[in-house]
Design a protein around this nucleic acid. Structure first.
Lengths: 336, 336
DNA sequence: ATGAAAGCGCTAACAA
DNA sequence: TTGTTAGCGCTTTCAT
């Protein structure tokens, strides 16, 4: 197999200079129509494709973005990435995705991608789950996803977590529940804090006291939701509703309740958050807050590209709304 | 911000030639220890990082692999990617992932990645779900994942689907079920065909006739599993067990059965395939075949890197086993 | 409208 | 062990 044709081969083939070929492939208008046709014919004949590496080299930009997540196997992250990729593509960028489970792996990724100039900018999903944000060099434009930026120079896109949690808890309260437990995520993550704040706000608006004994934490896994609620039950806490800060913990909570002989939703209502794909196939189908993940990704990509293309754009912070999806895991309090 | 230091700056700073700096950063042994130290000091002082784009340019290789999936949002695909990324990293490669929902998008991706020389090789997950395999130019080394290669030049890694399906169905048969329905995936995909073959083989080994009326298809979604089983019930087919070719369809099947007043597993046993993360949290917890996805990804990456590093390696085809996970959605037939 | 020359940051081949 | 000389394939001046 001989190596691929270069711009030089096309120049020979069509009898013009390399420069003219370059103009043609870049859509430069300063080329005579006849010349352009000749060159395009030669390109087609030779099957020439511009070498992107060489273009990047000469231009100093790669037209490539990276989207980094803690893992690809979590549905919400993957959805954000796909939304971002779609938006990037529309703007002529290629978006690659990769994941780093911990801070050192993340640092290595940033090193490879940013410091070694492989990409023009980076989208970072959940930057505050560990120390990874410390490795966010200011070398490349960066947009944070799923957390408020704690650095004035970085833009961010996230859900309006507090408002969403408030809607969720208000839903439970409006059903007549006055003792609402919350299973929150790791407090190192903004979204857990914000959802807790929304929980508190909703209770307060309803004139209900917040019982710290009903606040328990998990790590987003179903198992952790199970553990959290089991503990609550063993401690003899009274509650008729649970606001789990994600669907997986909600599912774990449901199981814990059943194991303790409580019916869901007859005895206890349970809400989740995210609306994962099979949320409606659990028993009972989960009432939850739906996040438009792809949209979050699209917005983030748009912000990043904006920053790339007009250097002096001030960093923006975008908040997106979530939507209540009522299924069968929540129901009005029994009159007693 | 001044631009980043180059190899030339390091050369000046340390009083050696660019070539010597190049040798240092590439770990070439032909450098005097003293010189090496000087250069390394200069590198540290300047904060120099080799520009990967320039390296790729000069070397003609990018040390980057791509892993392409139909979507990132399916757990099995994401797991394969993470396994592949880990293996690639160990070998000094960077693996980027991207997704393409349909053949045209896939073609564009291949164009960007392979024809424009952005990566050295490609892993393609599920190449036969549509016409995408037709866009697999022979320009770069490619390894197929999740399907037998139909092209002698391409290596592949997949599950031993037939054996796995056989184990699954044999499990049901050993429980005393003689009327076992199957909900298969799209027949364009090898794995559906192979799992059907395993189903047939298991029945035959058990001396049971295959009733074509008990063979129904879905598109892997829970909804499709629901529809398939609903139709079977409406048609009045008799069966006491269902082998769904993935967990999502199994979950749909369970729902359909319940809606028709059948208890699972008391009246009908249901098996899935994949062991998705929340499989044990459905009601009932799903009996299923567990695939070691990360391992599939690792193997695939290993094959690709092998092909890259020793050009004349013949394409290999690897088959990995799956493991039966018994939970509560299957149980022995009631004696009647 | 087109071409010539220089260079992007690095490595490879050859010398010394 | 080190340096010199050419590129890699393309774009960007600056001429013409």
């Amino acid at each position: 197999m001989t190596s691929r044709p270069t711009i030089r081969d096309v120049a020979h083939e069509s009898g013009v200079s390399r420069q003219t070929v370059s103009r043609v492939i870049n859509g430069d208008p300063r080329v005579a129509p006849a010349t352009r046709e000749h060159v395009e014919a030669a390109i087609a004949r030779l099957g020439f494709r511009p070498n992107l590496i060489a273009q990047s080299m000469a231009r100093g930009r790669t037209h490539t973005l990276a989207c980094l997540a803690p893992t690809l196997t979590v549905f919400t992250f993957a959805s954000i990435i796909e939304g971002a990729a779609a938006e990037a593509r529309q703007h002529g960028y290629f978006l690659l995705s990769s994941s780093a489970p911990d801070a050192p792996a993340f640092a290595a990724l940033v090193e490879q991608l940013v410091l070694q100039r492989r990409v023009d900018g980076v989208l970072v999903i959940n930057p505050y789950i560990d120390e990874r944000y410390q490795h966010l060099s200011a070398e490349a434009p960066i947009v944070l996803v799923g957390a408020r930026s704690r650095d004035a120079r970085l833009g961010s896109v996230s859900l309006d977590e507090q408002a969403a949690a408030r809607i969720a808890v208000t839903h439970l309260v409006s059903l007549g529940h006055t003792r609402v437990a919350v299973v929150h995520g790791p407090l190192a993550e903004d979204c857990s804090q914000d959802r807790n704040a929304g929980y508190a706000a909703a209770l307060q608006s309803a004139g209900l006291a917040l019982d710290p004994g009903l606040v328990v934490g998990g790590d987003w896994s179903a198992t952790s939701g199970h553990t959290a609620i089991s503990r609550l039950l063993q401690a003899g806490r009274e509650f008729t509703a649970v606001f789990a800060q994600n669907d997986r913990m909600a599912v774990g909570a449901v199981r814990a309740l059943r194991e303790a002989g409580r019916r869901v939703p007859d005895d206890v209502s349970v809400m989740g958050f995210d609306d994962i794909p099979l949320a409606s196939y659990f028993d009972p189908p989960l009432t939850t807050m739906r996040q438009d993940m792809p949209r979050i990704g699209r917005q983030a990509a748009r912000l990043l590209i904006q920053a790339l293309e007009s250097a002096d754009t001030p960093p923006q912070h975008i908040n997106l709304p979530a939507e209540l999806v009522v299924r069968q895991s929540t129901r009005p309090m029994e009159g007693r």
